[in-house]
Computed example of a mutant assay.
Amino acid sequence: MTASPTPDPAAPNPHASAEQVQAAYSDTKLAQVLYHDWEAATYDEKWSISYDERCNSYARGRFDAVVGGDAEVPYGRALELGCGTGFFLLNLMLTGVATTGSVTDLSPGMVEVALRNAEGLGLDVDGRVADAETIPYEDDSFDLVVGHAVLHHIPDVQKTLAEVLRVLRPGGRFVFAGEPTTIGDRYARLLGRTTWELTTRATKLPALASWRRPQAELDESSRAAALEAVVDIHTFDPEALERTALAAGAIDVRAATEELAAAFLGWPVRTFEAAVPAGKLGFGWARFAFGGWKKLSRLDEAVLSKVVPRKFFYNVMITGVKPPAPVSL
């Protein structure tokens, strides 16, 4: 089976002008489109996304961590909101979580890349350019709805979760992962800003000139990064996020958190990778970065999660279920 072509005629815009960026400061949904169209072509490389055992394991690990390892899979039809390049749903499908899928995103560029990735993997996936607050599918259409790092971009999270429950079949489940906690976002941004500043300053030195990206690329990165203040709307307290899901109408709601020590390595590493020329860092660096993150993640899970309140971790995940249909008498 192969992915169907993008049905929406909207064309991606990977190079927003300074005027478009300025306009986006007063229009958060325009900002979402511009920012994510800009990132679409390089997003997988930037975040070291792949569709092999490494990311299969990561995606399935997030799913199991919040749902529980004894979840009955596969689900039949799954939907990913804010799909990006398809990272979460496609990797989950590769591990047998769902048999068919649909992807949606406000960004035409992201939907285009996600469908191309699905086609290359031979997965049965269709896609639409769509707003998560008004999901363009009929009631009771899906067995599973997922998303990764998407809720914090959406203006009305409770409205979106109500829409998710509408398109789920009774008893269907949603799983959202990769959302920033309020405390975690503060230290992650500080780590990112500090790393970017130190790297871009150091690479101005003649001895490190080969490590400096072209100024035009740095300027474009800075313009796009400036939109983060517009596109990153929310951070979450785990308990408050649970209350939001319950208010939307979900049952069996549970939030879980992860990444504390791992975040203190991961954010500087990812920022450094984005600040230096593509291809400058070799396999040894990749092995160090991923290996170090895995070791610190194990420390987070085995030790820190037992003694540190969950609100101090960087990532929060949330799951819930659509109530069963009422029994007619």
Rank of each mutant, 00 (worst) to 15 (best):
Gln20Met: 06
Leu260Ile: 03
His152Met: 14
Thr203Gln: 05
Gly184Ser: 08
Pro206Met: 12
Trp47Pro: 02
Leu241Phe: 12
Pro9Tyr: 05
Leu123Gly: 02
Ala263Asp: 00
Ser297Ile: 00
Thr271Asn: 09
Asp139Thr: 15
Ser297Asp: 03
Gly86Phe: 07
Val67Asp: 04
Glu163Ser: 13
His234Pro: 11
Ala226Phe: 09
Ala245Phe: 09
Glu220Met: 14
Arg287Leu: 11
Val111Phe: 14
Glu53Cys: 06
Thr160Cys: 14
Asp105Cys: 11
Thr182Ile: 10
Ala202Arg: 08
Asp300Ser: 04
Leu265Trp: 14
Gly178Thr: 01
Ile154Glu: 01
Trp285Cys: 01
Pro12Met: 08
Asp27Lys: 06
Arg254Ala: 14
Pro238Met: 12
Met317Gly: 02
Gly101Met: 02
His152Ala: 10
Thr235Phe: 06
Pro108Glu: 12
Ile154Cys: 04
Gly69Asp: 14
Gly84Cys: 09
Leu92Ala: 04
Gly82His: 08
Met1Glu: 04
Pro12Glu: 03
Leu165Asn: 03
Asp140Gln: 13
Leu265Thr: 03
His234Tyr: 13
Thr257Glu: 07
Thr42Cys: 09
Glu119Trp: 12
Glu72Ala: 15
Gly279Asp: 01
Pro326Met: 07
Ala216Met: 05
Pro309Trp: 08
Asp185Tyr: 14
Ala302Tyr: 05
Phe63Gln: 00
Thr42Phe: 13
Val67Leu: 15
Val97Glu: 00
Arg189Val: 10
Val157Ser: 02
Lys29Gly: 05
Ala256Ser: 15
Leu79Pro: 03
Ala3Arg: 00
Gly120Arg: 15
Phe236Ala: 10
Val113Cys: 10
Val164Trp: 04
Thr271Cys: 08
Ala31Met: 11
Ala71Met: 12
Glu258Cys: 13
Leu329Gly: 15
Trp47Met: 13
Tyr25Val: 07
Thr85Arg: 04
Asp252Trp: 11
Lys204Asn: 13
Leu198Lys: 11
Thr181Pro: 10
Ile49Asn: 03
Pro14Cys: 09
Leu218Phe: 07
Gly249Trp: 03
Ala250Phe: 03
Ser17Val: 05
Ala10Gln: 08
Leu79Thr: 02
Leu329Cys: 10
Ala275Tyr: 00
Ile49Glu: 02
Arg116His: 15
Leu89Phe: 02
Ala302Gln: 14
Phe272Ile: 02
Leu208Gly: 10
Phe313Asp: 00
Leu296His: 00
Ala118Pro: 07
Thr6Phe: 07
Trp196Ser: 06
Ala274Asp: 06
Ala225Cys: 12
Val113Met: 13
Val73Thr: 15
Pro309Cys: 06
Phe283Gly: 11
Arg212Thr: 05
Pro136Leu: 05
Glu197Ser: 15
Val316Thr: 05
Phe87Trp: 14
Glu258Trp: 10
Val230Arg: 07
